[in-house]
Design a protein around this nucleic acid. Structure first.
Lengths: 343, 343
DNA sequence: GTGAAAGCGCTAACAG
DNA sequence: CTGTTAGCGCTTTCAC
């Protein structure tokens, strides 16, 4: 019975004051070894567990980290969250998850900020913010770390989007492709400027290869495989379809592959496809891609907040490496078609 | 200056006592309309935000719901979490995420329970627990709801695993398959008894069709696509390989498809494959499957905790429907091979 | 309707 | 080293 047992109960049982009990349990320096022992024993016997709220109230911290994500069902987010949650758990911090899917919930969240009262710091996971939101973030008084995106001048971990894009594009170019399509992924109200690097890599790679970009070969859709399929349809419908396609994500690339197959085209014999991410199913479906360490980004973001909270210096910008993974979806372009004249 | 603004500040500015300010803001009945107005105005002007911790401490609740998951990177969990987080957000509850990946973290979590002090209720998402853990859960004093699994006699939402399995198996049987393999998914330290229904559906379907099960056609692996590929390899290595394979998940099914293709076998002409889930990439890869409403399970679980917290009656067991989705990976079995004798 | 006062459970000076 | 005394910021009887 009795309900939750409090510090007072422990103190009483150990025959010390509540203050001493508190000190003993939170491992303070100036406590006699034997006292400490007695207190711990009482706590154990009573199955005592501190109230983080009360403790936090008194101490002025919450012990919680807020994590903001725009999605949860997409692989990248789950994987990043997995890395992040692991370090936070080990550090004994609780993770408060905020999934802000639409403009309304974002508004509400950023307006109600002074998150101060809910968490000691916030991690933005693949969450691009606009001017207004950034300004709001800047003055909430708690540490901010971004992973997968840059957010103002706050510390962040991410890949080099441009470099990743170049790895993919250069691969296609080196294989000999000259007509290369790009499927841009963009989430209307979530990715503010996110894939800029991936897109500029496309243009730069083309320029470096002396290829004139054909606007008809770039199509922008949202991040789903379905949209990737649709985009490929458009590309195929253009007057002079590409022999290779560079997609901003593996999911999109897989959608593209499906459309190609349905259209009776072979991958990579007729059309090459490459994505970005190294989604687990990319290996399964033999998709060439540019791998990025996702869980590690979450992990690093976690370490950064912790460091910040501990008053340690924090690297302002960490860039994790990406790596070209050549699988079966990319190959040389088909022999040039016999052109439109009869022999 | 100033730092966080408190209720006291609001009260002062509105010219009322803190008690009245509190009542006005939390929408209590006995407050004069004009007073209420004045308080709200002050609060707005000061951008006041309550401290959930202080408020909770005083009121005896936390305003938080703990959500426990064994994984985050696998689609099912992200999707379920998405549904759950949405209702909780709308209800103004914070979501505390606990990702318990291994035995150690589980131990720690369940031992430290009296979650009482961290959350008002806990939702187990696809998280099977063992005896010891269940016993622990039963006496922590907060509401418990399970989604995707049953946990003791706590309220739960899930599909009918057996029925789902039968939909998949019956489909294969009806197509004429007699040698059907099964790839069982099991997570050593996470799925305690979870896929029992999916496995028994296999045996029952076979029995109903008068087919003698061949132990060589059942192989158990973990939930990854890679393992599905490996499992399919084993199946192919058996003396008399199956003409159809029933996998416990789409990810596993996709792994199996890959092995088949690499072995030069066509799907579904040579071997049919069916999974469970209706993973977004199942549609993309034209995989037949049994669809389950995942986000909805999270959503319902959320509503159940909220109802419980509100003291409303809660359905003890909700079963959401599954649906056979026939795509291109399943078809009739190949014509019987010419048998091992020469004409 | 509103204010005063007593905590919620814990921590942090400040004295001993 | 340990106990006493104040709160942390808010809610809630209990009177007026």
């Amino acid at each position: 019975m009795s309900g939750p047992v409090n510090l007072a109960d422990v103190a009483r049982r150990a025959g010390v004051s509540q203050a001493t009990a508190s000190r003993a349990l939170s491992g303070h320096p100036h406590v006699a070894g034997t006292t400490r022992e007695r207190v711990w024993e009482a706590a154990r016997a009573l199955e005592y567990v501190v109230s983080p709220d009360a403790s936090g109230l008194a101490r002025g911290t919450t012990g919680r980290i807020a994590v903001v994500v725009p999605h949860l069902a997409r692989w990248w987010f789950g994987a990043a969250l997995e890395g992040l949650s692991e370090v936070l758990r080990e550090a004994g911090r609780d993770l408060l998850l905020y999934r802000l899917g639409d403009a309304v919930s974002r508004q509400a969240f950023f307006d109600e900020l002074p998150t101060r009262r809910r968490a000691d710091a916030v991690v933005l996971l693949g969450f691009g913010v606009d001017e207004r939101e950034r300004e709001r973030l800047d003055r909430i008084g708690v540490g901010i770390v971004a992973a997968g995106t840059r957010v103002g001048s706050h510390p962040s971990v991410s890949i080099d989007e441009y470099a990743a894009g170049r790895q993919a594009m250069d691969h296609l170019v080196h294989l000999g492709h000259r007509r290369i399509g790009m499927i841009v992924a963009a989430d209307p109200e979530v990715d503010l400027a996110q894939p800029a690097g991936r897109s500029s890599a496309y243009r730069a790679a083309l320029a470096d290869a002396g290829i004139t970009p054909d606007p008809a070969l770039t199509v922008t859709v949202s991040w789903s495989a379905e949209d990737g399929a649709r985009a490929m349809g458009e590309l195929l419908g253009s007057p002079d379809p590409p022999t290779a396609v560079y997609a901003h994500s593996d999911e999109i690339a897989l959608g593209a592959v499906r459309t190609l197959r349905r259209s009776g085209l072979r991958v990579p014999e007729d059309v090459s496809v490459i994505g970005i991410d190294d989604h687990p199913l990319a290996a399964t479906t033999d998709l060439s891609t540019v791998a990025q360490p996702v869980g590690e980004q979450g992990d690093l973001a976690g370490r950064m907040v912790l460091a910040g909270l501990a008053g340690e210096p924090v690297d302002p910008v960490i860039t994790v490496p990406t790596r070209l993974v050549i699988r079966g979806s990319s190959g040389r372009p088909p022999a040039p078609r016999p052109a439109n004249r009869r022999p």
